[in-house]
Design a protein around this nucleic acid. Structure first.
Lengths: 233, 233
DNA sequence: CAGTGGTCTAGACCACCAG
DNA sequence: TGGTGGTCTAGACCACTGG
């Protein structure tokens, strides 16, 4: 007696994925309809739908009404990067995290920043320099500008003990952002804070953040020499 | 009562998200149960479930059986990077793509590579150097090693006209990979191919790829000076 | 043990779009 | 215009886990 297989949506999803990997359904091939698959797997159509929807979200298959479901021709690989707070990252490595405020200054936004954040010409911003350490070794230099109009409470924060990232995350959670990665040569200032020689190649991450269409902050984070950011997909 | 609103799962999802942003439910707060929300929105529990599941996947809320659904305290920001084929990327910028094979050589895997890919000591690999151009300006230098045992057909490919990335994508689609980003100083070779001076900081991406538990390829892609990789989330 | 989310079902209607 | 996926429903049972 063939034992009843548990027909969860995960089984369906994995089996379909397996068939695609095994070229049972090669690239561009048309898959059976949801109804047909439901019959084959002995489950409801909703179950098949859930399974195929997940594969579609991963870019494995393309779905279109009427025309059906096809194996993606050029699978767009999607790498997910988990951007966490520095403190968390350090603590996950079983290292001791330390934060230090280097500079805190309220200024009128320079022209390039007003342009970057779509701010009025005379907008007031808080300009910060911070350092993050892991086991007392320099990990990241952070230069940040915060739009005071968007977060008026920020003028009360001294950022001596809590970093601006964590403060903002608590104050303005669930914001949208644009992020960019690049390689830069260490300036004299960066070299000093990250204890390396001038012109050393450094990994840099820039991020612009909005909350409900309003620009909140722009931050430039530069990592110590040799830093690698990695992920799986 | 108030007019029946269209209660799609998207409406529920967006409304819940709005309330979280508006601090109706602050960080750490316990949300109503699915049944309660279903009653409030006048829809089935499955609809609420779908809505909340999507928010949970985005890291906005944490869900646990019995204890219920809570607003995430430290929302883990997930940035999605779309890793596409170079040719596609260039064509999307309305630039002319050009590819060139620099070197193609079959060798015994060096020790570091055997270690990196978990290969036997005498494994044969194909070692490639390639260049990618946009509008005839150097865009990326690619150094790649392919595990011949995993893809025997690769010895027949000459890679003169089609790059190894596209070839592998067609031959071994839907593989798993580990990816790492870093900043490096231009070696003499890199400086020559990317037309920059030695020690220029360059953005580099390394990727190890497996297909069904078997190591397939390791590739090191170095971009032209000033390259930025960006995304939204 | 009991409350909550996780999943499945059988059926239904709708939206889109290729023929 | 009919076929296909997209979604919703009302109900059910299960799995996990806090009290």
């Amino acid at each position: 007696m063939s034992e009843q297989k548990r027909t969860g949506f995960q089984e369906v999803r994995d089996e379909v994925l397996q068939r695609i990997e095994d070229r049972v359904w090669p690239q561009g091939a048309l898959l059976p309809t949801e109804l047909e698959l439901a019959a084959e797997f002995g489950c409801a159509r909703a179950t098949v739908n859930r399974a195929l929807r997940e594969l579609a979200e991963r870019g494995i298959i393309d779905r279109k009404r009427k025309s059906g479901t096809r194996v993606a021709v050029t699978p767009v690989k999607q790498a997910k990067l988990d951007i966490a707070v520095m403190r968390k990252q350090v603590e996950e490595m079983n290292a001791t995290y330390r934060y230090a405020l280097v500079k805190r200054q309220q200024i009128t936004a320079p022209a390039w920043l007003s342009s970057q954040l779509s701010l009025p010409a005379d907008a007031q911003v808080l300009h910060l320099h911070c350092m993050h350490y892991a086991d007392n070794r320099p990990l990241q230099f952070e230069e940040r500008w915060i739009n005071i109009a968007a977060v008026p409470e920020v003028v009360e924060a001294d950022f001596e003990s809590v970093g601006p990232n964590e403060w903002l995350l608590a104050e303005v959670p669930f914001s949208n952002a644009e992020i960019a990665f690049s390689a830069v040569a260490a300036s004299d200032q960066l070299a000093e804070f990250l204890t390396c020689t001038t012109n050393t190649p450094l990994f840099q991450m820039e991020r612009t953040t909005w909350f409900q269409q309003q620009p909140v902050t722009f931050v430039r984070m530069t990592f110590h020499p040799g830093y690698r950011m990695s992920t799986r997909y």
